[in-house]
């Protein structure tokens, strides 16, 4: 009896260790993926920062011109002098362009804010519990993070159905969606289409990510969920993306399947239960 008890605790200890190793692997794959996206995200941020910075310098010039006019209110000898300054500084242009300058800069700041908060949502380490979450919001967050990888490769088509909140670890589902989106973009050679479809069927939520890229040959299709299996060149892929996606979906008691026609494209379908059968107990 005693021996059995010892074996039992030993078993539990090993299980806990395995669970921890799995979590670390998941986290490092996530960080590796973000690392690969970093150049793209920098590009996304440098664009708005570029024009905001330049706009601020133009704004300084505009303000100097306007101060020249307001300062002249005290020193000018006649109204004509003031009117001459007003004409010289092209006041009407300043007035109308100031509005655009501020609106465009604000738009830029909003974009940087969106990207930063998406990155933050995305890289969350702590929340490991199942919670009701809005999948559409998760998809939008993920799209913001990978936007730079996608926008030069494909048009994104959202075909969203009505979805209730789903019991899931949203940061992990986001990671799966990111993997599928980046893979879809890599499969497209010139410029294509990526369709994201969601629907609610009975007790299940379905997400489909379909591209019209080069497709996966049948012999590769059987192996895509194997760890370290990749057809991408060295340095481009870890070979872990889909295998971890598979583990994540499995942990959610869901399914992930791929349908592909070489030359026509690939469709990944994730099926997730709306409610987890026994919450918090995924042993």
């Amino acid at each position: 009896m005693k021996e059995a008890a010892i074996a039992q605790t030993e078993n539990e200890r090993l299980n806990a260790k395995l669970e921890q190793a799995n979590r670390q692997l998941l986290q490092s794959e996530k960080l590796a993926a973000i690392g690969q996206l970093a150049a793209g995200v920098a590009h996304e941020i440098n664009n708005p920062v570029g024009y905001i910075y330049s706009n601020l310098q133009s704004l300084e010039g505009y303000l100097n011109d306007i101060f020249r006019l307001t300062d002249a209110v005290d020193s000018a000898r006649s109204l004509e002098d003031l009117q001459l300054i007003k004409k010289n500084i092209d006041y009407d242009y300043l007035r109308s362009d100031l509005k655009d300058l501020l609106a465009e800069s604000r738009e830029g700041i909003d974009r940087v804010k969106t990207i930063i908060s998406a990155m933050k949502d995305f890289s969350h380490i702590e929340d490991e519990e199942f919670k009701p979450a809005d999948l559409h919001r998760g998809i939008e967050t993920t799209l913001n993070v990978v936007n730079n990888e996608l926008k030069y490769k494909a048009e994104i088509i959202r075909d969203f159905g009505d979805l209730p909140e789903i019991d899931c670890i949203i940061s992990q589902i986001n990671q799966v969606i990111m993997n599928l989106l980046v893979n879809a973009a890599h499969a497209i050679e010139e410029f294509g289409k990526i369709t994201i479809r969601t629907r609610h069927e009975g007790e299940q939520a379905i997400i489909e990510i379909e591209d019209n890229g080069k497709g996966i040959s049948p012999e590769n299709l059987n192996r895509i969920f194997e760890p370290f299996y990749t057809t991408k060149p060295i340095g481009k892929g870890t070979g872990l993306g889909l295998s971890l996606s598979f583990n994540i979906v499995e942990k959610h008691k869901g399914r992930i399947e791929a349908l592909s026609t070489p030359g026509h494209g690939t469709c990944f379908r994730i099926t997730l239960p709306v409610n987890q059968p026994e919450q918090g107990n995924d042993g």
Binding site: N47, P48, G50, Y51, L101, E104, E107, G108
Partner: peptide, 12 residues
């Protein structure tokens, strides 16, 4: 491809 970049350069 970013219109806001073009506006700020035009200002400049």
């Amino acid at each position: 491809d970013e219109p806001n970049i073009l506006s700020s350069l035009r200002r400049l």
